[in-house]
Simulated scan of single mutants.
Amino acid sequence: MTQADLATALDKPQSFVAKYENGERRIDVIEFIDIATAVGAAPGDILAQIQLVDESAKRTSRRPRKA
């Protein structure tokens, strides 16, 4: 899916998608849900995957944990 395709699905300009894709803009929870739905993904599944990756990174990190 291109930025233009996603923007059309969200009824937003392509620059809206480009800005958060490039890290120039953050998205809120409602936008996240809309984006996930537009790309055919379940928002909860995406968050679960992020959590798994984060937990894995913490286990393999050699930096000392903060108390």
Rank of each mutant, 00 (worst) to 15 (best):
A7R: 06
E21A: 11
E24Y: 03
G23W: 02
L47W: 08
Q51K: 11
R26T: 08
I27D: 11
E21Y: 05
S61C: 03
I30V: 15
I35E: 10
K19S: 13
D11Y: 04
Q3I: 03
R59V: 07
K12E: 13
E55Q: 14
F16C: 04
R25D: 13
Q3P: 10
V53C: 07
I33R: 11
K19F: 00
R59E: 13
D11W: 03
K58C: 06
I33T: 12
F16Q: 11
A57Y: 04
K19I: 02
P43Y: 02
K12W: 00
D34Q: 14
E55K: 14
T37I: 08
A38S: 12
V29M: 09
E24P: 01
A48S: 10
A57E: 09
I27E: 09
T37L: 10
D5N: 09
A41I: 07
S56E: 14
L47C: 12
I35Y: 06
K66T: 10
D45V: 12
E31K: 01
T60E: 14
R65C: 11
K19D: 14
T60Q: 13
R63K: 14
G40E: 15
Q14W: 02
Q51Y: 01
E55R: 14
E55I: 01
G40F: 01
T37E: 12
N22S: 15
R62A: 10
F32A: 10
D11R: 11
I33K: 15
V17F: 07
V53E: 05
V17S: 08
K19H: 01
A67K: 13
D34F: 10
A4G: 00
L6E: 06
I50W: 02
L47D: 11
E24W: 05
E55T: 05
S56L: 11
R65L: 15
G40S: 05
F32D: 07
A42L: 05
I33V: 15
Q14D: 13
A57W: 00
A9M: 06
A41F: 09
Q14N: 05
K58S: 12
R62I: 05
R65W: 07
A18R: 04
A4L: 03
T8M: 09
I33H: 06
D34P: 01
K66N: 11
Q14M: 04
T2F: 03
V17H: 01
I30E: 13
V53Y: 05
E24G: 08
T2V: 09
T37A: 09
S61K: 05
I30L: 13
R59K: 15
I46K: 08
S61Q: 04
L6P: 02
I27Q: 13
A7K: 00
T8K: 15
L52R: 14
E31G: 05
I30K: 12
R25T: 07
V53S: 07
R26A: 15
P13L: 03
Q3D: 10
T60N: 11
V29C: 07
P13N: 14
Y20P: 11
T8Y: 00
R59S: 12
